[in-house]
Nucleic acid binder design. Structure first.
Length: 728
DNA sequence: TTGGGGGCAATTTTT
DNA sequence: TTGCCCCCAA
C-alpha cells in the first residue's frame, strides 16, 4: 500500500489507499487534521480502523510521524494500533503508547524536575498493598480496623482525582477519611523514601509536572503536536489533565470514545470528560460513527433498548446493514446449576453441528459466577479458557528475579529488598528482618543500608550477621550488571542469586516456574532485539507496566469465559450473558457505590459484543456466599423489544403482558413534569426530580419515598401518575 | 522458619 | 462456599 506514495499522486486525494472503503462519517474523521475533534464511536463502528488511518493520514498530509502521539489505555490496544498504523506505511517515530508508559517516559526524561531519582521503581498492585499495610501500621493503626484494601482504594481514588494528602485531609469529613488521610500521608512518605511510585503516581506526577513546569510542557508540546486519545470516556482526572495540557498550545486534540461504554467509573474514570468535550472545545468537530458492522439488527435493537434508559449520554442512533439474524433469547432457569446445564448443553450440541467453541463467549458480572459454568464445561468435555489475569509478571518466580534487578538499580527500594533478602532461603528470618527494619527506621536509612551495617555488626546481630554478609556479597557481585543489557543482566542474576539453582531443585514439583523464568529471559531478548539500545531500567519499566501476557491472538481454541468488563473491545459470533439478575446485573450493594447507569452500560457492552447470536439467562435461585438466595430477573430484561426477543421459561407470559403497554408515551404526557408524584410497582411512591425530553425518549430521575433514587426512560419505566390527594 | 487451621469477608481491575 | 490472612505450634 505504501508503494502508492511513490507514484507522486497528490496524497491528500489518494492517501495511499487510506481513504478507501470508508463511510462518509469515517472519512470525515480520518481526514480531520487541525483543531479539536470528538469522534463518538458506537460499538463495532470501525473505530480502530478510523484511528489508525487518521494517524497515517496525519503523518502523510499534515505533519511528521514524530509529531504524532496516540494514547490508549491498554498495551493490547497500543500494540494493535501500532500494527495497524505500521501496515499503512512507514511511520517510524510516531508515539503510540498507553497513558502510563507515556508518563514513565515523561518522568524518566524529566526526573529531576519531577523530584525523582532516574532509576525510580514502579510498584505494582501487590507491592503497593504491602506498602499501604506498612503505612497503616506506621500510622499507629490496626489493619484489623482499617483494611489495607479499603484504604488502598481510597488512596488510589484520591490520586486519580489528583488530590494530595494535604487536600485529602482538608476535605476529610468523617473519622474514616481523616484516618485515611493520615495513612495516605505516611504512604507518600514511604514511597518517597524508597524512590518509588505506584501506577497512579505515574499519571498524577506527570500531570502535575506538565501543569506546573513550563519548560517541560514546552518540550512536550513541541514534540507532540497532534494528540490522539482513544477510549476518552475512560479518562480520569489525571489523564484528562495530561491530554488537555499536552494539546494546550496546538489544540490538536482528537479524542474517540463512547460514553455508553464507560464502565470504569469505580476506578476514577469520569464520563463527564467526554460528555463535556464540546464545552471544553466549542469549536470541536464532532463525528458520530453510528453504523455498526458487527451485530445483527435484532441484537443492536435490543442493546439500544437497554442503553436508552440512561440519562448521562450522547444520543446516538445505531444502525446496521447486517441481517435481522435470529431473535435474541432470554432464558429463565430454576437455579445456577440449571443455567449452567442449559448454556453448556446448548454449546455442546451446537459444537456437534459444527459451531466452533472458539466462537462462543460467556460473560458474567462477577468472577464467582464462573465456577458453576466451569464445572459443567468440564463435565461436558467442552474446551474452554478463562480470561482472568493471573498476570505473568505477578508470578512469584518472576517478581523474585525482577526484585533483584530493582534493588541493584534502586538501593532505596525496601519492598524489593525484603522480597529477596531470604529468597531463595538463606536463613534470614522474620526476627532478623524486623530488627533490620526497626534499625533502618531509627537511623532514617534504607533497609539495604541497615543490612550492610548488620552484616558487619557481629555484636548486635550475632549469627545473623554472617548470613547477612553472604547476602550482601551476592548483591555486590551483581552490581556491575546494571550497565549490562537486559537479557545478560537477567541471566546473571538468576545464577548469582541462587534462584536458578533453587528452581531447578524444585523442577519436579513446579516445572512451570522454570518455564516461566525461561520465558522471561526470552522476553528480555525480544525486547532487546526490538530496541537495540535498551537499558535495564527501560526494560524494567516496561515489564512493570505489562499486565497479563498478551493473550495469544488468532485461533481461539475453546469457549471464552470472562467478566463483562474484560469483554470490552472484543467480539464473538455467539454470546451468552449469564446471571442477569437484580443485585448481580445490575450489581447493587445498597450503598453509595451503586451506579445503575454504569451497570446499564456494562450490559450494553456485553450485548454489543455479539455478532450473530445473543442469549441472556437468569436463575430464580442462586447460591450467594454459601447460602441459597432467591433472585429476581434483571430489570434490563424488561425493556428488551418484544419483537426481537424470544422469552423462554418461567415468566415468559408475564413479560409479554408487561411489555404490551411499554414503549409508548403516556397519553397525558403534558401532565408529567418535575414535581409530579409517581408510583412504581416495586419502589412505591416518588417524585420526579429531573426531566429531559430527548428526541426519541423522555428521561426522568425519580426520588422515591424510600430514599432510593433512579433514572428511567418514561416510556419504559412502568410508572403511574398519582394525584396529590390520592396520597392523603 | 514453615505449615496448618481458624476466623472473616465477599464486585468489576485497562496500568 | 471459598479464599485469604494471620497467628500459633512444632
Amino acid at each position: 500500500m505504501s508503494d502508492d506514495f511513490a507514484f507522486g499522486f497528490n496524497v491528500t486525494d489518494d492517501g495511499g489507499g487510506l481513504l478507501e472503503g470508508l463511510t462518509e462519517p469515517q472519512l470525515e474523521a480520518v481526514t480531520h487534521t487541525e483543531g479539536p475533534a470528538l469522534v463518538l464511536a458506537g460499538p463495532g463502528s470501525g473505530k480502530t480502523r478510523v484511528i489508525s488511518r487518521r494517524a497515517a493520514y496525519l503523518a502523510a498530509n499534515a505533519t511528521k510521524p514524530w509529531n504524532v502521539l496516540a494514547i490508549t489505555f491498554t498495551n493490547k490496544a497500543a500494540n494493535e494500533m501500532r500494527e495497524r498504523i505500521d501496515a499503512l506505511g512507514d511511520h517510524r517515530g510516531m508515539t503510540v503508547c498507553t497513558f502510563h508508559s507515556l508518563c514513565v517516559r515523561i518522568l524518566r526524561r524529566h526526573h529531576a524536575a519531577a523530584n525523582l531519582s532516574p532509576n525510580f521503581t514502579i510498584f505494582d498492585q501487590s507491592d503497593r498493598r504491602q506498602i499501604v499495610k506498612q503505612s497503616i501500621i506506621a500510622a499507629g493503626l490496626s489493619t484489623a480496623n482499617f483494611s489495607p484494601g479499603m484504604v488502598d482504594q481510597r488512596i488510589s481514588r484520591a490520586k486519580n482525582a489528583m488530590i494530595s494528602p494535604q487536600a485529602y485531609a482538608d476535605d476529610a469529613e468523617d473519622f474514616i477519611d481523616q484516618t485515611v488521610a493520615r495513612v495516605y500521608d505516611v504512604y507518600e512518605e514511604l514511597l518517597a523514601n524508597m524512590q518509588g511510585v505506584d501506577f497512579d503516581d505515574l499519571l498524577f506526577k506527570a500531570a502535575v509536572l506538565v501543569g506546573t513546569n513550563d519548560a517541560v510542557a514546552a518540550d512536550l508540546r513541541d514534540q507532540y503536536r497532534y494528540v490522539l486519545v482513544d477510549e476518552y470516556q475512560d479518562t480520569n482526572v489525571a489523564q484528562y489533565r495530561i491530554a488537555n495540557l499536552l494539546a494546550k498550545e496546538h489544540r490538536n486534540l482528537f479524542v474517540t470514545g463512547d460514553p455508553d461504554q464507560s464502565i470504569y467509573a469505580w476506578r476514577g474514570a469520569d464520563i463527564q470528560n467526554i460528555l463535556s468535550f464540546e464545552q471544553d472545545y466549542p469549536d470541536a468537530q464532532v463525528v458520530r460513527l453510528e453504523q455498526n458492522f458487527r451485530s445483527t439488527k435484532r441484537i443492536l435493537a435490543s442493546a439500544d433498548a437497554v442503553i436508552v434508559g440512561n440519562m448521562q449520554r450522547k444520543e446516538k442512533s445505531l444502525w446496521t446493514e447486517n441481517d435481522d439474524g435470529p431473535a435474541v433469547r432470554v432464558i429463565e432457569l430454576e437455579d445456577a446449576a440449571d443455567e449452567a446445564r442449559a448454556v453448556v448443553g446448548e454449546i455442546a450440541s451446537l459444537s456437534k453441528q459444527g459451531q466452533s467453541p472458539g466462537d462462543v463467549a460467556i460473560f458474567y458480572r462477577i468472577n464467582a459466577i464462573s465456577r458453576t459454568l466451569e464445572e459443567e464445561l468440564l463435565r461436558a468435555g467442552v474446551p474452554y479458557r478463562i480470561a482472568r489475569g493471573t498476570a505473568f509478571y505477578a508470578r512469584k518466580e518472576i517478581k523474585d528475579v525482577l526484585a533483584y534487578l530493582r534493588v541493584l538499580l534502586n538501593p532505596a527500594d525496601d519492598v524489593s529488598l525484603e522480597r529477596i533478602i531470604n529468597t531463595p532461603t538463606r536463613g534470614i528470618g522474620k526476627t532478623t528482618i524486623d530488627r533490620l527494619k526497626a534499625f533502618a527506621q531509627q537511623q532514617g536509612c534504607s533497609l539495604l543500608d541497615a543490612v550492610k551495617r548488620g552484616s558487619t555488626d557481629k555484636d548486635t546481630f550475632k549469627r545473623a550477621s554472617t548470613k547477612l554478609k553472604v547476602f550482601v556479597d551476592i548483591l555486590d557481585s551483581m552490581q556491575s550488571l546494571v550497565d549490562q543489557p537486559p537479557q545478560l543482566a537477567l541471566e546473571q542474576t538468576l545464577l548469582l542469586s541462587g534462584l536458578m539453582a533453587d528452581l531447578k531443585q524444585n523442577v519436579d514439583a513446579e516445572p512451570e516456574r522454570l518455564e516461566n523464568v525461561a520465558e522471561l529471559v526470552s522476553a528480555a531478548a525480544e525486547y532487546q532485539s526490538a530496541n537495540a539500545s535498551a537499558t535495564l531500567v527501560e526494560w524494567l519499566s516496561y515489564t512493570s507496566l505489562l499486565g497479563d501476557v498478551d493473550m495469544v491472538e488468532g485461533e481461539r481454541a475453546g469457549v471464552t469465559l470472562m467478566t463483562l468488563h474484560a469483554a470490552k473491545g472484543l467480539e464473538f459470533p455467539c454470546v451468552y450473558i449469564v446471571a442477569a439478575e437484580e443485585g448481580i446485573l445490575p450489581m447493587t450493594r445498597g450503598d453509595a457505590s451503586d451506579d445503575l447507569e454504569e451497570e446499564r452500560r456494562l450490559m450494553f457492552v456485553g450485548m454489543t459484543r455479539a455478532k450473530q447470536r445473543l442469549t441472556i439467562s437468569s436463575a430464580a435461585r442462586r447460591m450467594v456466599r454459601g447460602a441459597f438466595q432467591s433472585m429476581r430477573r434483571s430489570m434490563f430484561l424488561d425493556v428488551l423489544p418484544e419483537e426481537h426477543v424470544e422469552f423462554i421459561g418461567a415468566s415468559a407470559g408475564v413479560t409479554r403482558r408487561r411489555r404490551s403497554t411499554a414503549g409508548e408515551l403516556p397519553p397525558d404526557i403534558e401532565q408529567w413534569q418535575v414535581g409530579t408524584l409517581v408510583k412504581h410497582p416495586t419502589h412505591g411512591l416518588g417524585v420526579i426530580q429531573e426531566m429531559f425530553r430527548g428526541a426519541r425518549r423522555t428521561h426522568v430521575n425519580i426520588l422515591f419515598k424510600s430514599g432510593h433514587q433512579q433514572s428511567w426512560v418514561l416510556e419504559f419505566a412502568n410508572l403511574e401518575r398519582v394525584e396529590f390527594d390520592e396520597v392523603g
